[in-house]
Write a protein that binds this DNA or RNA. Structure first.
Lengths: 187, 187, 187, 187
DNA sequence: CATGAATGAGGTTTCATTCAT
DNA sequence: AATGAATGAAACCTCATTCAT
């Protein structure tokens, strides 16, 4: 992706986090260090920019979470890797994480974007399915299981952030929340 | 609260759910069957209306969830009552539930409103504290425990809604998700 | 004039002085201790109220200035009486004086009102005319002479007010400005 | 100052003179031949525009009045120069003159603007002070003397304008009013 | 008469988007 | 491409005025 396009997207992330998606495009352009008009050379409409921001964050997040995942490991190890990578990413990317949450419930991102994002997490579903077959995980619908996982992850991140935990505690609570989840869904 | 005020709040809920908080006040007024000016007789600013909508929903929700809660029952029964009442309420009040979620992450509701809302749920915290003392629940921070509960509840509601489950299945998954939660946090 | 009408007019004077003629009628009504609707029982439109306020002040001012004027005295005595009565009135009626000035240059009071007001001061013109015939006052157009008088009076009042002069000084500068005026226009 | 800014200010002057400061910004923009939005590119708020109009007029007036003033002349010559330049300017700039008067008593121009304007006329005060030291002018407070001057000037202009005097008469009455003023304040 | 809620036209201001340079 | 002034539709909000009670 073009350099200037990324500059604008990052400015948008910054400002969406601070002020919500309502920020004027003019302000975003200024923050990005480009002119008002230039922003519209890269994004036809503001809606377009919002969609791209959403996709950009999700894509980067998925990439970082799955980057050095060894898919030959056993199921619980894979899960824990993803679990802690998600929390780690949220910690390292406060703004992106916040904006992604904000966009998801804003009624404003185009439907198609979320479809694409969901694909990133297909690996987990496949893995979970195997767990059920192997009679390790309760036989429940995959989308319920992953909704719950997402819910617990976000709860954990929220706890970590609002209490400003340090590295050691982050690790501890990452493990604790993972154990709660696994214990909960185990047969 | 005044009749017309409620009319406006309900119109706002309807439209926030459909189009996000960006809807013009004019459209809200029209939906409520009053004039644009009348809306501003009841709410000084749009911000004010948004805050009131948020508080109105939360208050009603809390009232309905706790209405026939028998506080003399044992901890797990109380928990399950609240757990299923929350899911039941979300089912009966699709719009309100959606709007509350939307407002919570919108960066737009005044801080003070959430403070007030949190108070509604103090009962649960007290109960959970007792569970920890009695060595039934893992000794974890209360706010983590309730964040996780909230996360699982919303995950369950989301699953129920996106799969349009019927009464029997709703009951079943309410019970299942509760068991997952309890199993997860139990000692 | 009706009691309540005067109540409203006085409230209007108060608020015009503080905030200009832009004040909402609702605020005027509140200040007068009557309802929004009642104001419009007494004044058909806001324009009407403004006109009435203007006329009310001018009428009262004229009445007080000319009240114990002995028209048999000689010209200079009559002049000085009016001169000091004007300044005295402005001192005693800060708000009314201020509002009259504000209304005169506001482009907002109906033309007809000023016509009526001018009549109040006909006495002076007659007297001045005699002074010219008697070769005491320079033979200049009456309206120039009275414009100048008005200009000097307002200058004097302005000086008194912005320096918050006490009674003795007020009297002194009333006399001084009068002497300047008379000396200026004398043959 | 920017071309379009001046266009807007002149349109504002025109309309303030015709209809008072209450004219809609939309009308001002239209009169200036720009869009409503453009007006707000040059003036953040209407208040801002009003203040700028006031300052713009006063600044131009001061510049024109003092432009070819020979400060080495004697006091009375300097005075007369300013006196007649003021009247001349008011004649040539009917609208500006009217609007300045209107704004001064409107309760609407920001305090700070008048402070700046007063500075323009400091020259006169210095000169008058010398006149007092030299025992030519009565020993009176400077601000009283200049208030009176301003009062007489405005009275003269008002007389000239309401009688639509021609050049020759304008000159005659300029001289006459000056003599009245000087005679009045002379020792 | 008195009231004050209701009205809606109209005001100021914002902002996504365009386009000439 | 990049710019940023210009645009004008549309947003929020005000307020003179009406009218049912």
């Amino acid at each position: 992706m073009n350099d200037k396009k990324i500059l604008i997207i990052n400015a948008a992330i910054q400002l969406f986090a601070e002020e919500g998606v309502g920020v004027p495009t003019a302000k975003i352009a200024k923050e990005a260090g480009v002119s008002n008009g230039t922003l519209f050379n890269y994004f036809d409409t503001k809606q377009n920019l919002i969609d791209d921001v959403c996709f950009f964050i999700a894509e980067k997040m998925a990439a970082e979470i799955f980057v050095d995942l060894d898919r030959s490991r056993d199921m619980e190890e894979i899960f824990f890797h993803v679990w802690s990578a998600y929390i780690y990413w949220a910690q390292k990317n406060l703004l992106e994480y916040k904006v992604l949450g904000l966009l998801k419930s804003s009624q404003i991102v185009s439907e198609s974007v979320f479809k694409k994002i969901d694909n990133f997490f297909a690996v987990i579903d496949e893995n979970m399915e195997q767990g059920i077959k192997d009679n390790i995980i309760k036989d429940l619908p995959l989308d319920l299981l992953s909704e719950i996982a997402r819910g617990q992850l976000d709860a954990t991140v929220s706890y970590i952030q609002s209490n400003k935990l340090k590295k050691a505690d982050v690790d501890r609570f990452t493990r604790i929340s993972f154990e709660i989840y696994v214990k909960g869904i185990s047969v």
